[in-house]
Amino acid sequence: MSSSTRFYRYLALCSHLLLIAWIILWQFYFQKQFQYSPVFVGIVYVLPLLLPLPGIITAKPYTHAWANFVVLFYLLHSLTVIYAVESERYYALVELALCIGMFIGCSVFARKRGRELGLGLKKLKTVMQEERERFEGRK
């Protein structure tokens, strides 16, 4: 793994772990009023971040790619809180920074590591040429 790829892997991993820790701290310790039960908060806010964690720890490019779909929920959450809840705006800014770090780290790592492993998709032009050669060779 190249040093550039390793940097984005660690950016994704650190941002992901810090985002989990931050969400737990924010929802269970910094919250002044509890609107929902702790079980609900755990399922809705913490569980989605735990799903891609094994693949991110083991540096699987495919997991890094789909983890971006998970982090979009937290990105939207932070933007909504920044706009609507003035008392929690600074908590949401931290969440936003961690989401951006995770999104960039996961995206770039998945792309770079996928290329290093040869997992990229072929261009349509190449696929069409291979199919043409295969079918014309049968006749």
Rank of each mutant, 00 (worst) to 15 (best):
M1V: 05
M1Q: 00
M1F: 03
S2W: 01
S2H: 06
Y8W: 13
Y8S: 00
Y8E: 00
R9H: 14
R9G: 09
R9L: 14
L11M: 15
A12K: 03
A12F: 02
L13S: 04
L13Q: 14
L17S: 08
L19C: 04
I20F: 07
I20E: 08
A21C: 07
W22P: 01
W22F: 07
W22D: 05
I23M: 15
I24P: 08
L25H: 11
L25R: 13
Y29T: 08
Y29K: 04
Y29S: 06
Y29W: 10
K32W: 05
K32M: 09
Q33R: 10
Y36T: 08
S37T: 13
P38N: 09
P38H: 05
V39C: 02
F40Y: 11
V41R: 12
G42M: 10
I43C: 05
V44G: 04
Y45H: 13
V46D: 02
L47H: 01
L47N: 01
L49V: 06
L49E: 08
L50M: 14
L51V: 15
L51N: 00
L53S: 03
P54T: 08
G55L: 08
G55E: 09
I57C: 13
I57S: 09
T58P: 00
K60S: 12
P61G: 02
Y62P: 02
Y62G: 02
Y62D: 09
T63E: 06
T63I: 14
H64N: 15
W66R: 09
W66V: 13
N68V: 03
F69Y: 15
Y74S: 06
L76E: 06
L76S: 11
H77L: 12
H77R: 12
H77Q: 13
S78I: 04
L79D: 01
L79G: 07
L79H: 02
L79S: 02
T80C: 02
I82N: 05
I82V: 13
Y83D: 10
Y83W: 13
Y83E: 12
A84N: 13
A84M: 11
S87N: 08
S87L: 08
S87Y: 03
E88A: 13
E88M: 10
E88C: 01
E88R: 06
R89S: 07
R89V: 08
Y91N: 09
L93M: 14
L96W: 11
A97I: 10
A97L: 14
A97E: 01
L98H: 05
L98R: 06
C99D: 11
C99G: 08
I100W: 03
G101M: 05
M102K: 03
F103R: 00
F103S: 10
I104S: 04
I104A: 12
G105D: 03
C106K: 00
V108S: 00
V108L: 07
V108K: 09
V108I: 15
R111Y: 13
K112H: 10
G114N: 02
G114Q: 00
R115V: 04
R115S: 12
E116F: 04
E116L: 05
L117P: 01
G120M: 11
L121A: 10
K122D: 09
K123C: 03
L124K: 07
L124S: 02
V127A: 11
V127D: 00
V127I: 15
M128T: 11
Q129L: 14
E130K: 11
E130P: 02
E131F: 14
R132G: 01
E133W: 02
R134I: 08
E136W: 11
G137S: 14
G137M: 05
R138E: 13
R138D: 05
K139I: 03
